[in-house]
Design a binder for these strands. Structure first.
Lengths: 339, 339
DNA sequence: CTGTTAGCGCGTTCAC
DNA sequence: GTGAACGCGCTAACAG
């Protein structure tokens, strides 16, 4: 039924080893024999069985990618970029979508990637136990989230610097009542919301603006959450004149809430996001841009280099550039304040 | 280093065959032995090598998913849903992102999924040659795009009915100059834009509205394309009072173009999209909703059933429901017309 | 430069 | 109910 290496060997009048060497471009085969084998293989439609070759060689030419919510723009974009780099290098991608707690638990207890992948790229932050599980795989590890960690190649951004530039922008415009929509209720060990919040506090302190806890709300990194959070902020006795949302999706939710309250942006309230979502430009959202696809691609590249030269010195932590993109949702505060 | 089935067998004082039977729940093992083996395996952290077991059994417990642009909301969402169903059933997902022509060609010529997957789910429409390549794999096939085709389980929607409801809505509001932003420049064999366009023509004809080619523009299914297309339409001598965009992303681009031209929506121009993108609600976009995640999940389920009972009768073509969602971007035409 | 010999780790007959 | 033998298709080490 399916054509095997011995079929090719027989048809070409050589041994299976020669076929193996010839097709994989290994030295030790004369050019004419190699060409003839290639021709026979093509004619028969032969492809080596990955199961068999990885069993024999120990290499799988497969990379495992674990992600939360691949349907979300951010992760989808990272995955997209990483896959392109990996497949161009001849690697296949095994995808694990760990959005639900059950899926996540199932993955880390059964660890289906064991003996199946040459490396793992994680788009989520593993907790200490999960980290141990990944380390136990004994393969190179990379991640695009969180800070530097042992055993991982980390490609990320400077969350604090990014958040600082956003909040400072609002301060420079003259705002004093600056709210923040964060994502504190996310998974543990997820330092991003913590870092961005700290930057917010730092900039306020730096500007001599007292911190008002009533100006903080949790948006859970979703559009709906952002909308609810903004609604909460508006319900306060002294609502903010500007809001820093820790993600563009939450910012979009905030914009929706503002529209529902008949408040104009940026005349009544300014909004800054974070990410530079593909639709941020469409909406005219001022935001902190980070190279999302770039991080996926870079992490994939570093992983490939680790596989090519296991002993090469590689940076354990790469910082990608960020920049504040000014659009149409920020302006100086209205003299009359919101309302 | 890595623990194998013989390690477990030795530690449990049984043979490898018994371990194999016990761990996979096959009959022929006493309950107490089975329990003991399970305990030993857990303690040693044993997982069967997929390479070895699929080499021996012929089953890979892996499904190949090919997609264009997984970074795009639509495909990311379909993939997300399909992956959840498949991994819950114990299958792994091998992902192939075929956005670029090179990646696509590479995939279909080298066919890296051969002997690697038990089934394939395609989120793109293969041309006749590519179809042959997929059929040659000899495994169940499914797709979420295009019409019914031999050898595939197709899960989709009625594109014509959906587009009709959108255009009819505009007609019912009283619009006579109705533009369309389509995606004709996409890949060949992609019938969606053709079907949606035909529906547009049918409804116009039905309403006695003459067709004006100047009211059609190509948006290539992207936000930027939609923006350009809308700009083209506005540059005409008699711009439309309403526009049907064949996708929400193009509709969002159109909204941006309208804003830039200082035209109000829906007062000056009405816009209808197609898909019910996750941000459509945020923007208040009237659109034709289709169950995007639902299609991915359903296709995955049908594939699993095919694998479980290869001889069962399965529908070759499943139509998922659609519905028009009225929001804030459509209204009767302004008495003065656009401007 | 090429063929031969051994496994890689497991599932699957068979015997027992 | 359990174990021994064999083979899945391929790569790696060794001869020649």
């Amino acid at each position: 039924m399916t054509v095997s290496i011995t079929d090719v060997a027989r048809a070409a009048g050589v041994s299976a080893s020669t076929v193996s060497r010839a097709l994989r471009g290994r030295p030790g085969v004369s050019d004419e024999v190699r060409a003839q084998i290639a021709a026979v293989a093509a004619e028969l439609g032969y492809t080596a069985s990955r199961s068999a070759s990885s069993l024999a060689s120990g290499r799988t030419y497969t990379i495992g990618v674990v992600a939360p919510y691949i349907g979300r723009w951010f992760f989808g974009t990272v995955l997209d970029a990483a896959e392109q780099i990996l497949s161009a290098a001849g690697y296949d991608v095994l995808l694990y979508n760990l959005g639900s707690p059950e899926a996540r638990k199932r993955f880390f207890t059964k660890l289906p990637v064991r003996k199946r992948v040459d490396a793992v790229l994680s788009l989520l932050i593993p907790d200490p136990e999960e980290t141990d599980a990944l380390l136990s795989l004994g393969v190179p590890l990379a991640t695009t989230v969180g800070g530097a960690r042992d055993g991982f190649v980390v490609v990320g951004i400077d969350d604090r610097a990014g958040a600082e530039s956003a909040v400072r922008h609002l301060v420079n415009l003259g705002h004093r009542r600056i709210g923040m929509i964060s994502g504190a209720s996310g998974p543990l060990h997820w330092t991003t919301p913590i870092d961005r919040r700290q930057a917010y506090l730092d900039v306020l302190a730096d500007a001599g603006i007292p911190h008002d806890p009533a100006l903080e709300a949790d948006g859970g990194y979703t559009v709906e959450g952002g909308e609810q959070a903004m609604t909460e902020l508006l319900a306060g006795s002294r609502p903010p004149t500007a809001v820093f949302a820790q993600s563009d999706e939450m910012a979009m939710g905030a914009l929706r809430a503002l529209r529902r309250h008949r408040l104009r942006v940026p005349d009544d309230v300014s909004v800054v996001g974070f990410d530079d979502h593909e639709l941020a430009e469409v909406i005219g959202l001022t935001t902190v841009a980070q190279p999302v696809a770039g991080q996926g691609a870079e992490a994939a590249r570093l992983l490939l280099r680790r596989l090519d030269e296991p002993d090469a010195e590689l940076p354990g932590h790469v910082q990608m550039p960020i920049r504040l993109v000014l659009r149409e949702t920020t302006a100086p505060p209205s003299p009359r304040g919101p309302q």
